[in-house]
Structure formats: structure tokens, C-alpha cells
């Protein structure tokens, strides 16, 4: 039992409050903005009291931005769908490729395994812009530019190293004897991987998948350069809110709320796995 004085616990409570305010206030303010018109947002001094309106959300969902001078057609909902589709498929592909690779790197020490693993990690070092120019040319030559397939492939640069390195640590934490015991009891290599290694590394795989999803969802630059309007995710689509006639803050705020909703919900639901998965070993000795 840990003993803490009242003073300490009060201090700790204050520190937590400050941290929560620091991180949550912008999101809270955007949440408020999303229910306001441009006029109430831009008034001086700002005030948290206003008459809420759903116009921002209505125009986003219907795809028609009612500006002060004209009506603009935007594809926010299809951007949202693109984001979802790209992130889910990329993470799925990343897990299918990355988990067996992570297992191989963790269990089978083959020649050059460390070098290959490091090379994969080094993809994360390169500035995306540097990669993008040659990639655009290649993609145009082989017909992958402006396709979902091409984007998902490029997204592997983001998700694969992440999954590989997190999951590898997990597999390394499983005592090899558990797998040996299963194999010697009459099971093949593949069955051991599926029945023993995968379930034991489950929390780690879930955490890696979740993180990879968030990273893929937040990606901007790859999609901006490699995808045209109908394939663009919400991060790129949000640029449409900056129009010639001004910036519609209310609609941007609503757009932000809609676009962070899936990752926010996922993170809330899975935060236990995330914290456990990233901080604890799979099997405690």
C-alpha cells in the first residue's frame, strides 16, 4: 500500500487538472465553435455563451457550403469515407504483412535480420516530401497514381514499421518455451504461431493496429500529392474550407469534430489496451 499525504494528493490533483485543461481545452473550444456561426465565433471578446445551431453540421453532411456570397459544393462526407477506407485497409494490410514479419524477426535469427528490420524502421526517418517526388513519377508511369491501391501501398510506409517494431517486442517477450512445449506436444510451426504466439501477443497487436490507424488517419502529405479529389481523405478535403470568400470557422470546427470522432471513439474504447499494450510485457515472469 502506497502512502501519500493529503498535500501530495492535492498537488497531484492540481497537476492532473492543469494537464487535462492544457490538452482538452482546444478540443473543447472547437467543439463549441462547431455549433456557432462565423459571427458569434469572431465576436470580441469571445464568450462560451451563444445560441447553438446545427447549420455547420447540416451543410457538411448535405455537401453544400452556404457562403456569404455563393453556395459551394464540397465532398466532405466522401472524404470521410475515403479516410475510413484508406486507414482500415492500410492497417489490415499492414497487420497481415507486419505481424508474421515481426514474428520472424523475433524468433528466427537469420542472417541480416537485424539489418532488414532496421531498414524498415528507417522508412520513418526519411522526410515524406523527399520520397514523394520520385514516387509520383513512378506511380504515374506504372498507373498507380490516383488509385486506392497506390495510396494503400504508400501508407505502408507509415503503418508497417510501426506495427513491425511494436509487435516484434511483444513476440520477444513471450517465453520461447511456451511455443516449444506446444510444438513438441505434436503441433506444427504454423499452428503454434496461430494458437500460441498470436493470442499471447494480442494486446500488443491491438495497440500497434490502433496506433497505426491513428497515424494513417492523420496522414496528409501522401494523399495530398498522390490522390485527386475523389480519393482524398478528410485531412486533405478540409482544405476546401479555405475559400476565396473567407474562412468559415464554424464549418471547419464541425469538420474537425466529425473527422476526429472515429479515432477519438476508438481511442476511448481501447485506451486500456493502448496503455497496457505499450507499457507492459505480454507475459509477466
Amino acid at each position: 500500500m502506497q502512502t501519500t499525504s493529503t498535500f501530495e494528493s492535492v498537488l497531484r490533483g492540481m497537476a492532473i487538472t492543469v494537464i487535462i485543461l492544457f490538452f482538452m481545452f482546444p478540443i473543447f473550444w472547437i467543439f463549441l465553435m462547431s455549433f456557432q456561426t462565423n459571427e458569434t465565433i469572431l465576436r470580441v471578446p469571445p464568450s462560451p455563451f451563444f445560441e447553438p445551431t446545427l447549420t455547420n453540421y447540416r451543410s457538411l453532411i448535405s455537401g453544400r457550403l452556404e457562403g456569404s456570397t455563393a453556395t459551394l459544393e464540397i465532398a466532405f462526407m466522401s472524404n470521410l469515407y475515403n479516410s475510413l477506407f484508406l486507414s482500415v485497409t492500410s492497417v489490415t494490410v499492414g497487420l497481415l504483412l507486419g505481424v508474421p514479419a515481426a514474428y520472424a524477426f523475433a524468433r528466427l535469427k537469420f542472417r541480416g535480420s537485424e539489418d532488414i528490420a532496421f531498414t524498415l524502421l528507417s522508412f520513418r526517418f526519411a522526410p515524406p516530401l523527399l520520397v514523394l517526388l520520385p514516387l509520383t513519377i513512378y506511380f504515374q508511369q506504372i498507373g498507380l497514381a490516383d488509385t486506392y491501391g497506390g495510396l494503400i501501398w504508400v501508407y505502408q510506409l507509415i503503418v508497417l514499421p510501426l506495427i513491425l517494431w511494436i509487435v516484434r517486442g511483444y513476440f520477444e517477450d513471450i517465453p520461447a518455451d511456451i511455443e516449444y512445449a506446444y510444438r513438441i506436444a505434436g503441433h506444427g510451426f504454423w499452428a503454434t504461431f496461430r494458437k500460441i504466439a498470436l493470442p499471447l501477443a494480442g494486446p500488443g497487436i491491438a495497440a500497434a493496429g490502433l496506433l497505426a490507424f491513428i497515424f494513417a488517419w492523420n496522414n496528409f502529405i501522401f494523399a495530398l500529392v498522390l490522390a485527386s479529389a475523389d480519393k482524398q481523405p478528410v485531412t486533405v478535403g478540409a482544405l476546401a474550407f479555405i475559400t476565396a470568400s473567407g474562412i468559415n470557422y464554424g464549418q471547419i470546427a464541425a469538420g474537425i469534430m466529425l473527422s476526429i470522432a472515429p479515432t477519438f471513439a476508438l481511442a476511448l474504447y481501447a485506451q486500456r489496451y493502448l496503455v497496457e499494450g505499450l507499457s507492459l510485457g505480454a507475459v509477466k515472469g
Binding site: 516449444y180 512445449a181 505434436g186 503441433h187 515472469g285
Partner: peptide, 20 residues
């Protein structure tokens, strides 16, 4: 041969039980 085909049984020194 892979372990599965050797028909041997083994007791381990350390942690080898299926935790689930």
C-alpha cells in the same frame, strides 16, 4: 525432422505453460 514428428516429450525448466 520438425519437433512434431519426433515423438518426444519434454519438461521445461522455466515458464512454459499456456497462460490462457
Amino acid at each position: 525432422l520438425p519437433p512434431v514428428q519426433r515423438n518426444v516429450a519434454m519438461a521445461f525448466e522455466g515458464y512454459s505453460l499456456y497462460p490462457t
